[in-house]
Amino acid sequence: MKTRYTFGGDEHVYVEMDDEMSLDAFFKSLSMSNAVRDANIEGVTEICPANASFQVRFDPDVISPDEIMAKVKELEHKAESAEKRLTTRIVEIPVFYKDPWTHETLMRFRERHQDPNGTDLDYAAKINGFADADAFIEAHHSQPWFVSMVGFVAGLPFLYQLVERDKQLQVPKYLSPRTDTPKQTIGYGGCFSCIYSVRGAGGYQMFGVTPMPIYDPEQKVSHLKDFMVFFKPGDIVKWKPIDRAEYDAVVAAVEDGTYEPRIAEVEFDLDEFNADMRGTNAKMLEALNDA
């Protein structure tokens, strides 16, 4: 893992921890971007952690590019020696896999897909060596996920599964992006899952839909009253498969303002996780079940 520093025009410092995805790269980028935030550097306007990189936006009229670059570089040691430990939350996200809305959409854009004769789930199952879509779905929801980045559009989380690299599910993006994706679609591209926070264009494969809103600019939804965006980097997610009846029940609860996502506070320690992945995950899932 070798850190690479570069400028994005005259207003951004861009730091890439590694060119490949790993939890180590993610943790380093998160702790380094936190260190930049804590350093309270005058002239910095945005600090954006991403999967294996982060970006700092600055005002060159306040701080010179060389000066901000030097300050960010100084903080690398701090990030390296920081404990790879996070107090965070695990959230259960209900997912209606094989739902009718993403199915209608994926059929509409079939000519843009690698396998025009199947569904996105059939294709993902096949190329990842699963017997059928249900076996793939099982692998998708049985182990938890890390929110490694929020962005693309408002409040959209990118998620990375907390499993060994050889167990990672990998799926290419559509050959050509769709012009439509239903709101709250569970998507997949590369090694990342995502939740489309709003309806719109998208290139990720579509597996299902969640009834739980994750972005509400009007802040009317009960769990989004305090802030319009639900996710932040470092959140942990457990998908919970649900059927149509449960889907409808959650939609109704969201509408009458009584929906409360299931959330538990957890500690995540990267070294502990690397030593025993399944055990660490089981402990977090237990905390969630007790919530």
Partner: peptide
Amino acid sequence: FGAGADPSNIVDGC
């Protein structure tokens, strides 16, 4: 790993 197959792809960043 994680970048995608096309040479213009990278691991998603800002």
